[in-house]
Design a protein around this nucleic acid. Structure first.
Length: 425
RNA sequence: GGAGAGGUGGCCGAGUGGUCGAAGGCGCUCCCCUGCUAAGGGAGUAGGCGGUGUAGAGCUGUCUCGAGGGUUCGAAUCCCUUCCUCUCCGCCA
């Protein structure tokens, strides 16, 4: 959510950022709306001032028992009431219209975000590890999982439809191990506080993080007007909604392992096989709440936290700078981590680490007091650390062996009771 | 699900339809006092949107007492709707 005053003093910056996202310029239209609103407010204030002054006099007159004077003033002020009410109504409408438009405006892009329309224009930032060479034809994760008898899409479809999976036995345990490993890493070594928060949230929470109002079709809604979280970014970021934090307690760092629910509207036909794109998946999320001057450093730090997971799992990956056209609307800059998937012979997204600036904080009314004691909006960041379901895919494909078994990565073995290989039961 | 109580500043908590953005307390800031500490005394301390103006400040209008409507010349106070919290009962885990 933008501050209209900021747009007023930076209209070109604002429109240029929109243009990079492929959005038509809107500064002029927004400022015109705001001008009208201001006129209304000024006129309204004048009427209110007169009314308040007269009302005060009426009160004094009545207190002094001067009923005659009170009646005279009453008559004098009578028509102000209608004017004030009409002015209030107009102000409400104009403010609502302005806010509705502002609520849908995507966040400002940082200067170092590459130009481009889609993922083809993303720029590699750096690469870690080399794709392993197999002396056999590596399989995709679902081939491996189904052959092991531990991954069942057909049964899942009977229960829930497409884009669901049933995991069993050691593969189910492997996914659990991944989640535990990541949580322990972030809480013990990266200073994050583990959180269990609601998976079902009010629309206000989704508005706060920016999924609403524009992206309602991507999430599932319940019959009582709650929503299933598409990512625990929603729950974790909203932990600080409507709060006044002290500078000393920042940065706040939260992590959570949760299911995520996505309708995947608009992605029909994409990644239909396997568990790469599901309606339900587990993800370890990291959220940070910082002061404005530290959020960019925090972005690099958080990327490092996500990378630590990949390094620990010893999976080759590359980090991409998302280009303007491929970025989410709420973010100022996003780094994606893409894991090497031998079965697909390509890199696929496994984590996305973003800085939102004060965009979400404004929507949530999340502030802190600076050194002068003045309230300021905090900055928020979030990143997957990492998507557990996709990490399972990456582990299976990178650790597959010629006989179809899966070696267990060293860091996960403690979470698997020392087990080193996953084979058919 | 039934019955009741309540939502007020950073926090706690008073508030009769009129001079209430709001007593008091805590916290915080500054000052005074005391040899240090503890205690004590004094002053200050909400946010949004405008106007004016400045190096910074300041001055000023208005709105905001969960949210949204309404009654009234005037609402923290009265009415309606709604959300949330708490207590008791019932139900389920």
């Amino acid at each position: 959510m933008f501050d209209i005053k900021w747009i007023r003093s930076n209209p070109d910056l604002f429109d240029n950022s929109l243009a990079r996202r492929g959005v038509e310029p809107m500064a002029n239209a927004l400022l015109a709306l705001d001008d009208e609103r201001k006129k209304t407010v000024q006129q309204l204030n004048e009427w209110q001032e007169k009314r308040n002054a007269s009302s005060k006099q009426i009160g004094q007159a009545k207190a002094q028992g001067d009923e005659e004077k009170a009646q005279a003033l009453l008559a004098e002020v009578a028509d102000l009431k209608a004017k004030v009410q009409a002015g209030e109504e107009q102000e409400r409408e104009q403010t609502a219209e302005l806010n509705q438009i502002l609520a849908g405006v995507p966040n400002l892009l940082l200067d170092d975000v590459p130009d481009g329309e889609d993922e083809d224009a993303n720029v590699e930032r750096h690469k870690v590890g080399e794709p392993k060479r197999f002396n056999f034809e590596p399989k995709e994760h679902y081939e491996l999982g189904e052959a092991l008898g531990h991954m069942d899409f057909e049964t899942a479809a009977k229960i829930a439809g497409s884009r669901f999976v049933v995991l069993k036995s050691d593969i189910a345990r492997l996914e659990r191990a991944l989640g535990q490993y990541m949580l322990d890493l972030h809480t013990r070594e990266h200073g994050f506080t583990e959180v269990v928060a609601p998976l079902l949230v009010r629309p206000e929470a989704l508005f706060g993080t920016g999924q609403l109002p524009k992206f309602a079709e991507d999430a599932f809604q319940t019959t009582d007007d709650r929503w299933l979280i598409p990512t625990s970014e929603v729950s974790l970021t909203n932990l600080v909604r409507e709060s006044m934090l002290s500078k000393e307690e920042l940065p706040l760092r939260f992590t959570s392992l949760t299911p995520c629910f996505r309708s995947e509207a608009g992605s029909a036909g994409r990644d239909t096989r396997g568990m790469l794109r599901q309606h339900q998946f587990y993800k370890v999320e990291m959220v940070a709440v910082t002061t404005p001057d530290t959020s960019l450093d925090e972005h690099e730090r958080m990327l490092g936290c996500a990378e630590a997971v990949m390094k620990g799992l010893e999976i080759p990956y590359r980090v991409m700078r998302l280009c303007a056209g491929d970025m989410g609307a709420t973010m100022q800059r996003t780094y994606d981590i893409e894991a090497w998937l031998p079965g697909q012979n390509t890199y696929r997204e496994i984590s996305s680490v973003s800085v939102a600036g004060d965009y979400q904080a404004r929507r949530m009314q999340a502030r802190y007091r600076d050194e002068d004691g003045k309230p300021q909006y905090v900055h928020t960041l979030n990143g997957s650390g990492v998507a557990t379901g996709r990490a399972l895919i990456a582990v299976m494909e990178n650790y597959q062996q010629e006989d179809g078994s899966i070696a267990v990565p060293t860091v996960l073995q403690p979470y698997m009771g020392g087990q080193t290989v996953i084979s058919a039961d």
